[in-house]
Design a protein around this nucleic acid. Sequence first.
DNA 1: CAAGATTGAGGTTTCAATCTTT
DNA 2: AAAGATTGAAACCTCAATCTTG
Lengths: 152, 152
Amino acid sequence: MTPYLDACLRLARAQALMVKRFDNQLGRLHGLSFADFLLLQQLGSAPGGRMRRVDLAAALGLTASGVTRSLGPLERIGLVEREPDPRDARVAYAALTDAGRERLQHAEKAAGQLAATLLGGEEWAAGEVASLAGYLTRLGGTGLPEAAGDPA
Amino acid sequence: MTPYLDACLRLARAQALMVKRFDNQLGRLHGLSFADFLLLQQLGSAPGGRMRRVDLAAALGLTASGVTRSLGPLERIGLVEREPDPRDARVAYAALTDAGRERLQHAEKAAGQLAATLLGGEEWAAGEVASLAGYLTRLGGTGLPEAAGDPA
DNA sequence: CAAGATTGAGGTTTCAATCTTT
DNA sequence: AAAGATTGAAACCTCAATCTTG
């Protein structure tokens, strides 16, 4: 077993555990999965709280199909709204509703607290979390903005 | 957005991209998914190349149900064999066949090469990969299912 | 009853095909 | 024809229920 492959296996394991914890916490408190949260957050950080569905797919690393299917439940419970584009009838936007914005705010708070539990304990020095984020950015590359500080 | 939550999102992104690359490479070369590979590798590292299905589930972070369903295709193509326990009729082992051992060897080679591509380039110093592995181990623990009193 | 394992139903995501609009 | 989006079929995994054995 090479150290490279070993690191990849650890990456898989760490992510699986983390997602389970977010799913539990967000589901219990706000009725959202981690994937739901990622989607709402992406919308929340877009100008006007709305994005074309194809852009949403690229930002989330999903297929267009996956986005259509993920939006369904969120539209049904009124957190996201479908909006047509008056300029181009092929385009459909996904837009946060007021309820969606509010739910996102609360979920973001809960997610931040959980993340602080996972990474903000005494085991973690601040510089270590920044290093970890930098490594992960190198690995995951596209989709998220560059980290503030590069790891030592 | 706190740096803790930011790191969690980057972890999700990096893992998703990595798994896609392993799925592509292993699928194209050896007809295995990354999940298949993890399962075969776990068996390969067990004494006698065999494990009880319940232990396999714990080692992989899956449910017993998930293991049953994952083993099905691997048994059908002859990489894994079902073995009863003469001492306890409730227990069924999953055991690597000779074909499974050989397939695992080849897949491990391909996986190691891909991992080296991802983490062995000039961008990565050896110490950085070791640091990353250490951080991920801190996050993901040993691989046992989530403890009862755990946060979240 | 408890433990190991499987099955039925359901959620999530992908691929390939399709539909509409440009 | 190309772009945006959706749908049908399928793969993968979970939960709850069930079956068998201890």
